[in-house]
Amino acid sequence: MIEPFTVPFMGRALAELALLALICGPVSVLVFARRLSFVSDALTHTVFPGVVIGFLVGGTEGIVVGALIAGVVTAVVLTLLTSGGTLPDDASIAVVLTAMFSIGVVLVSRRSSYTSDLTSFLFGRILTVTPRQVAETAVLAVVILGLLLMTARALIFRTFDPVGAAAAGFRIAWLDLWLNIIVALVVVAAVRAVGTILVVALLIVPAAAARMLTDRLPVMAAIGTGLILLAAYGGLLASWNASVDYGVSLTSASAVVLLLVLAYLLLLPLGALRLRHRRTRTAPQGRTSPHELVG
């Protein structure tokens, strides 16, 4: 079961995913608690024009810089729009997502390799990750974890009690921007290697699944990281075996995501059981918005 990973590209793929597991565990907990699923999904789309422009200007080297700029621009725009209150938050996110992505499509649609560009953006090139890219991811991982640790207490305070945090002197808008930027950095770190499909899943599913097992945030983060590691190992192995033994082309990104989702589905009844077990006397709380079905 270890043998396929002795092949260099498989080993590098696993190393890349392990690094992402380290950052996505904790970050996904914040995404979960602040209900930023849609923002995460939006960021994976809005870095696309950055990737395209970066590539057109600086070749392969320019991609990360371009994505970084697009990610930060999105984070700022989203923070401004959602604190402005002209539109409902979710509508602003949807509009920013579609508009930025379309700018990328307009730029790329004038190139001949249009469809293959988009495809690699979706799936990434996890099996062709270079040692240099793994090193870049490692650097970004350290930076992201550092930024997160520095501000974790304030971010958690703001999550559970925005009014209290504001009263205690925290600038809520700045904290929101900060978290959006951290999510953007994760997207940038991951998107080239693993593609948008996998990034969205890494940011949303681990914490949602871990929530079924615990309500303590650090434990959730650790379980999330563990789940990603398991899914990465299992997914890469499955896609290797599928293509080597059966000749089926199972994309590794899809395999990893599907394993993560499977874990979520398997843990779902466990969460329901836990809840029934420690139900308190308090009446259930309403939704934050009277008719918010989701999000």
Partner: peptide, 13 residues
């Protein structure tokens, strides 16, 4: 929101 996100990424994958 998280449950919707899980369905989104699962369906997409």
């Amino acid at each position: 929101a998280a449950a919707t996100g899980v369905m989104l990424s699962g369906g997409f994958a």
